[in-house]
């Protein structure tokens, strides 16, 4: 078996293959569902209903999509420049740490000033975390995949230390949690009585901003050039290391915003279970969107729907909700295969 590059990518392939990939992923999950003795049609039906079937369910899906848009953008921005940031989880948590450090009483500011201050702090926190592996990559040639992965563990332990130490809420009955952020820091709900908050709108704005940077700015052009071929970019006079550093600031900052939005929009304080792997899931979100900033919005909503739907389904149908993770992972692998096949033809000899 070998692959032959196609002269030009046909529109048919560009649409049919990704659709086939998703159908393939669903088929695998259907088999797994049958192993549990349930009917796949009923289970998928319950998942769709649980994710989109009511106003409450749909709003819950958008709430869950909010951090995923941020972490998905973080991965998309970095991967475009071939900076393999697998550490969005750490950057999210440090962004959240910065939010509670600055937002729980240190700066008693009115909201129009406090919001930007907290956003910038969170972005700086996340950016700083990614700057370390990026510096090690450009200066010493240390592979950033391993360092960003290892830093996820370091960051979580660091947060745990802070929550049992300096950031611990004295009124928290001994639980490892931070104080609540000031009322002026809290993001308003978009629908009263529901959990969807302004962070969702800001996430979409962030996607638009990233898209504009990507398409309209010199930095966006340079980032793509570095990602496409760093050597060629270097010969063309693009300062590769500077571009990578800027990419790291942007990517880490976006992941930091995910932490800010979860704290100020949803949870109110920082705990160790702030993120159930949003950083890792962001990678899947970015890949499903083919690294397109606006596509990230759609794929984040899709992935969030799978998770919210599976939670609702497992309560009624008794199929383990881990099927959501399996579904997301199989979608990722089949989707990256499909995207590759839009550019190549398979020859079976």
């Amino acid at each position: 078996m070998r692959l032959e590059p196609l002269e030009k990518r046909s529109t048919f392939r560009m649409i049919a293959l990704p659709v086939l990939a998703l159908i393939f992923a669903m088929a695998i999950c259907a088999v797994l569902v049958m192993l549990s003795g349930a009917s796949p049609f009923q289970v998928f039906g319950l998942m769709v209903k649980g994710a989109l079937g009511s106003r409450f369910a749909a709003l819950e899906t958008l709430t869950r999509a909010t951090p995923l848009i941020f972490t998905g953008l973080a991965a998309a921005v970095a991967f475009r420049a071939k900076l393999w940031n697998i550490g969005a989880e750490a950057q999210l948590y440090i962004g959240a740490v910065m939010t509670v450090v600055m937002g729980t009483g240190l700066l008693p500011l009115p909201w129009p000033i406090l919001w930007p201050v907290l956003m910038i702090s969170a972005m700086l926190g996340g950016a700083l975390v990614l700057s370390v592996p990026t510096f090690l990559k450009t200066r010493f040639g240390v592979d950033e995949v391993v360092t960003t992965l290892l830093l996820n563990f370091v960051a979580l332990l660091f947060v745990s230390m802070l929550l049992e130490g300096v950031l611990k809420d004295p009124m928290g009955l001994g639980w490892p949690q931070s104080k609540k952020v000031l009322a002026d820091a809290v993001l308003p709900r978009l629908v009263s009585g529901k959990r969807l908050h302004l962070g969702f709108v800001i996430a979409i704005l962030a996607a638009v901003v990233v898209w504009i940077i990507d398409r309209r700015s010199a930095l966006g052009y340079e980032m793509r050039a570095v990602g496409h071929n760093a050597k060629a970019a270097h010969f063309a006079g693009i300062p590769v290391n500077t571009v990578l550093a800027k990419t790291a600031l942007l990517s880490g900052g976006l992941a930091g915003l995910a932490g800010w939005s979860e704290v100020t929009g949803l949870k109110g304080n920082l705990t160790l279970d702030l993120s159930p792997g949003f950083g890792y899931t962001g990678i899947v979100v970015a890949m499903l969107a083919m690294l397109h900033p606006l596509g990230v919005i759609a794929s984040a909503i899709f992935v969030a729907a799978v998770f919210v739907g599976a939670d609702a389904m497992s309560r009624t149908a008794g199929v383990p909700s881990y099927i959501a993770q399996v579904m997301v992972a199989t979608s990722l692998l089949s989707m990256v295969s499909a995207i590759m096949l839009t550019r190549y033809r398979v020859r079976w000899r």
Binding site: L32, Y322, Q325, V326, V328, A329, L332
Partner: peptide, 9 residues
Amino acid sequence: LLSTSLCYY
């Protein structure tokens, strides 16, 4: 992601 989630499932 796939093998971990398959194990948990």
